[in-house]
Design a protein around this nucleic acid. Sequence first.
DNA 1: AAAACGGGGGC
DNA 2: GCCCCAGTTTT
Length: 219
Amino acid sequence: MKKKDTWGPLIHTLRKAVQKRTLPSVSRVAVEHPSPYRILVSTVISLRTKDEVTLKAAERLFTKAPDLQTLAGLTEKEILTLIYPAGFYKNKAKHLKQIARILIDQYDSRIPNDQAALLSLPGVGRKTANLVLNLGFGIPAICVDTHVHRVSNRIGWVATQTPEQTELALMKILPEKYWIEINELLVRFGQGVCTPVSPFCSRCPVYDNCRRAGVKKSR
DNA sequence: AAAACGGGGGC
DNA sequence: GCCCCAGTTTT
C-alpha cells in the first residue's frame, strides 16, 4: 500500500511561481550541448560566479577547447585568459587543466559517471559532482548550493546546518523521481522569489510554512 | 567550524 | 560602499 504522493502538486505549484525565470547557466549549456564534458567544465566555471559571466566564459573556452584533449593542450594561462573574469579564475584554470590531464590518463579520456570518481577531481565537490551526474548522465542526485540550502530550510522541508546535511535530508523525504528536477527548480525559486535578504513573499505559494530565516524585509 | 579564494554587477 | 554569486579547499 503506497502513500499518496503530495510532492507532485507541491512541485507543480513551485514551478508555476518560477515559470518566467531563465534557466541557470549550466542548465542552459545542458540544453544546448548535452555532453558530460561541457556540463563538467561549465559547472566548474560556475562556482560562485554569476550566470551571464559563466556562460560567456564557458563559450569562449569551448571554442578553443571543445574536448578533453584540446583542453589538456592549453596552458594554464591560456585557460585563465579565456575564462576571465569568472570568479576564482586562477584556481579554476589550474583545476580545469588538472582535470583534463587526470581524465585522459586515468579514465580513458571520459567523464566518469560515478560520484566517487568525480569527487576525487580537483575543484569538484558534492554540488558539482551531483550536477554532472544529473545533467550529464541523467543519474538521480540532489545537489545543494546556497539557494537549495536556504530555500529548503526556510520553507520547512528540512532543518539543517550544512549543505551535506541538507542533501541527506532531502534524499530521505523526497521520492527519487524528483531528485533531478528539484535542483533546478529550487535554484530558480531561490533566484527569483525566495531571495537571500529581501524575498518576494507576495509571490510565494508556500508562505504559510515559511520560517523566514534570515529575512530582513520582504517584498 | 571558519577563513581564504576573487572579480564584477546590483542596488 | 556593501552584498551577492548553481562552492571548494585549506587551516
